[in-house]
Amino acid sequence: MKEYLLLYRMDVTTVPNRTEEQAAQVMQLWMDWIGGIAAKGQLVSRGSRLEATGRVLRSGNVVTNGPFTDIKEVLGGYSLVKAADYDEALQMAAGCPVLNMGGSVEIREQAGM
């Protein structure tokens, strides 16, 4: 088993304002999907959702807000899973709710230190 980082990206400009009920429904989709991975014993870490904004530090102590203004898809969250290979990791990612919201899942094998 190898470990794969799943990075959820989506276009935040198209995310509709959700009612509380809609937000709960979206949450349920995520929980069902992540629960399915956990039920196979292949969830290493649920990870986290990420706020839409942040700070970027570059050399010379240059700090910017962003850099998201010019990029459509921003990183919305991440999880860590175990899988035999990329094929299996892709199969897992296939059920990710972000895909139905116009987003994508980036899958990266952990390289170790």
Binding site: Q28, M31, A38, A39, L43
Partner: peptide
């Protein structure tokens, strides 16, 4: 119950 199991499995498989 389903949602609680979803959470439980994330804490401990």
């Amino acid at each position: 119950i389903l949602q609680l199991y979803n959470i439980l499995l994330q804490i401990q498989y």
